[in-house]
């Protein structure tokens, strides 16, 4: 059987990292999620997920040079790995298969 699919929140974080490309670090990932799905997330939740995704090999990370606005602290940039891309795609196709033959959300009523 294929490796376990990333959870909902993991998928959301993975997609944000993928979309942000070279500019994915804690603050931007958080902003991205807040902007796109209007969900306020604690910094700790983002980081926990990023660390877990890194352990699973779905993202990789590298430290940048320190910047003054951050009190002289370095940023940790994340980047989605090929496995990560596979993971979100597998999750999506699984969802698609489950959705197959059902009416679109706009047509559904009384779920």
């Amino acid at each position: 059987m294929a490796p376990t699919l990333p959870s909902d929140f993991e998928q959301q974080v993975l997609l944000a990292v993928w979309r942000l490309g070279d500019d994915a670090y804690g603050t931007t990932v958080r902003d991205e999620l807040e902007a796109r799905i209007g969900r306020v997330v604690a910094q700790g939740a983002i980081y926990t997920t990023l660390v877990r995704l890194e352990k699973k090999g779905l993202v990789g990370s590298a430290m940048s040079d320190p910047t003054p606005v951050r009190g002289g602290k370095a940023k940790r940039f994340f980047r989605i790995t090929p496995e990560g891309v596979q993971g979100v795609q597998a999750a999506r196709s699984a969802m698609d298969r489950l959705w197959d033959g059902l009416p679109e959300a706009s047509e559904a009523s009384g779920r």
């Binding site: 910094q43 430290m63 940023k75 940790r76």
Partner: peptide, 15 residues
């Protein structure tokens, strides 16, 4: 291992 980058993110957002 995550101290500096995590707190840096918070500082940036605070600023």
């Amino acid at each position: 291992s995550v101290r500096d980058d995590f707190m840096g993110d918070l500082d940036e957002r605070f600023a």
